[in-house]
Structure formats: C-alpha cells, structure tokens
C-alpha cells in the first residue's frame, strides 16, 4: 500500500512539476513590462474549479480504494455476493453518461431539439441508477448483509453511498441547467445561453468521471 501511495504522490508531483516547469524557469527580476503569460490555463473558472474538485475527489476515492485493499488482506474478510442488479445499474450509468455526451454535442451545435431529450434522459437514467443502488442495498439487507456484519459489507455501503452522494450533487447542477433549458432559451440573453452550454459540458465531464470511479469501484468489489 505504501508503495502505491508513493507512486501516486510522485506521479502527482511530477505532473505539477511539468505543468509549472516552463514558467518556473523565468527570471522575473530581469523582465519588465506587461507579460502576456504564454500557456495560461485558458478556460472558464468553473471549468478549472471542476478539475480541481475532481483532483480532490480522486484523492478521496483513491484513499478509500487503498484502504479497501489493505483491509481486505486481513483474515476476517468475508467476500460479499455480487448482486446481479449491479450490472444493470452499471448499464444505466453508462447510458446516462452517453446521453449527457450527446446533450453536450447538441448544445455545442446550438441544437435545442437534440439537447432537451438527451438532457432529460441523462437525468432519468441517473435517478434510475440511484434507485437501483438502493434496491441493491435492500437485497443485501434482506440477505443478512448489514453494515456491521463484515468490513466487506461495510465498505460496500460506504463506497456506494459516497458515490451516490457525489452523483446527487451533480444532479443539483443538472437540475439547474435543465430548469433554464425548459423555461426556453430562445428569449434569453446570450450570456445565459453560454452559461447553459458550460453547465451541460461540465455536467458531462463530471458524469464521465463518476462513471470511471464507479467502474473502478465495481471492479474492486468484484475482485474481492
């Protein structure tokens, strides 16, 4: 475990280093006048904020994955059954991600007719995924796998809950964007249309990311 954390930390450090290296080599005391910084992060602050947030979430889930791995080595670990419903839920989440991606392409083309159904589908599929996860919980509980039964079960509940909470947070932004879209974009000022485009784009990034997290978590659950 220590080794994997080490590699993660070193990898992160190298990335930061590469990102900053060019600029860190300048000699600011010799340069005067306005410098237009080459290669500055040319993106909306929301986009940068989202990426920074994804780094934080990566740290959170990454640490959970490491701890999961470490704890599962102990002799008291009793592997959990893998409910078949999880495959269905995974499919739903993949479809949600696809729908958002299509919504994103539609909004980039300013194609409102393509945007609405895809945006709606993404939301419904996500809600269905969350509902499906709750169903899995119920199945497990009726099978006698409680939170405190075994660390394997406890990890399953925590990880699915945490992942679901992050999706629910995403749904809040999805709802705000959808609300604006359904009130009708035609009569809106340009800035608001651009805002919706940004929201949909960032939602799709976030959904893809959470899909990736889910696939990794699911793989982790299946492997133990």
């Amino acid at each position: 475990m220590n080794i994997s954390v080490l590699f993660a930390a070193l990898g992160g450090a190298i990335l930061v280093w590469l990102f900053l290296l060019q600029r860190l080599k300048t000699k600011p005391w010799l340069e005067q006048g306005v410098i237009e910084e080459g290669g500055a992060v040319n993106a909306a602050p929301q986009r940068v904020g989202l990426w920074v947030f994804l780094a934080v979430v990566t740290s959170l889930f990454g640490l959970f994955a490491i701890v999961y791995n470490m704890r599962s080595q102990f002799p008291d670990w009793r592997p959990m059954p893998d409910p078949g419903l999880l495959w269905v839920n995974t499919g739903l989440l993949i479809l949600a991600s696809v729908a958002l991606q299509r919504a994103r392409t539609a909004v980039a083309r300013e194609d409102l007719d393509g945007l609405k159904p895809n945006l709606m589908a993404a939301g419904i599929l996500t809600f269905a995924f969350l509902g499906g996860q709750l169903l899995v919980w119920r199945q497990l509980i009726s099978g006698g796998y409680y939170l405190a039964t075994n660390p394997a079960d406890a990890f399953f509940y925590i990880l699915t809950a945490l992942h679901g909470l992050h999706l629910a947070g995403g749904l809040w932004f999805w709802a705000r964007a959808s609300n604006t879209v359904w009130k009708g974009l035609e009569s809106r000022p340009v800035t608001e249309v651009a805002g919706v485009r940004l929201s949909v784009t960032l939602c799709s990034v976030y959904w893809h990311y959470l899909l990736l997290v889910w696939l990794i978590l699911f793989g982790l659950l299946l492997s133990t």
Partner: peptide, 20 residues
C-alpha cells in the same frame, strides 16, 4: 480551497505571471 486555487490560476490581473 477550490476558490483559492482557481483564483490564483484564473483571476490574476494583466501582467501578473505566476513568477511575479
């Protein structure tokens, strides 16, 4: 923290490079 990092990265005024 999201605010501090994003502000430093995105909201510096003209001429304020990272190394300034």
């Amino acid at each position: 923290g999201l605010n501090y990092v994003t502000t430093v990265l995105q909201a510096r005024t003209r001429g304020m490079t990272l190394m300034r």
